[in-house]
């Protein structure tokens, strides 16, 4: 699969897909989208990058081990649930900052962080699986 054309286009394709995945993640609360879908898109992006250019560039580009990303995601989700403890509400109760946080029209909420956590878990785990399998392919 390592053809020149695919190899040259893959980094750009991957960055576009990752950008798109973040977009899908953030619009998820009001439009179709969300953490699961966004995460899957990003994971496919990395899988494509891995197929096109080999696994080591992907690992370098990610900087962290994919499972570490996944762990960070799970932690983010859990912590976003713990925020509600500060407001004496049950675990994972959604909390919203007042409208127009820092002068920008933006729904800043614990739910958003929860969804980001979901995104990171899916990206991390599935990228890790895909890369591990691709690595076996290349050795």
């Amino acid at each position: 699969m390592r053809t020149v054309i695919f190899g040259s286009i893959a980094p750009y394709l991957t960055s576009l897909m990752v950008l798109f995945s973040v977009f899908v993640l953030l619009r998820g609360h009001n439009e179709p989208g969300g953490g699961f879908i966004g995460g899957l898109i990003a994971a496919s992006a990395f899988a494509i990058y891995g197929i096109a250019c080999g696994v080591s560039p992907v690992r370098r580009a990610l900087r962290f081990h994919p499972m570490a990303i996944s762990g960070a995601g799970l932690l983010t989700s859990a912590l976003s649930g713990l925020v509600s403890l500060g407001y004496a509400t049950p675990f994972l109760t959604g909390l919203w900052a007042p409208e127009g946080f820092m002068g920008i029209e933006f729904a800043f909420s614990s739910v958003l962080f929860f969804d980001i956590g979901v995104y990171l878990v899916v990206v991390g785990s599935i990228t890790s699986i895909a890369l591990a399998l691709e690595e076996r392919e290349s050795d």
């Binding site: 899957l40 899916v122 599935i126 699986i129």
Partner: peptide, 11 residues
Amino acid sequence: TAIVISFSLFA
């Protein structure tokens, strides 16, 4: 969620 989990299980 079932789709994502069944994919993990499948893998």
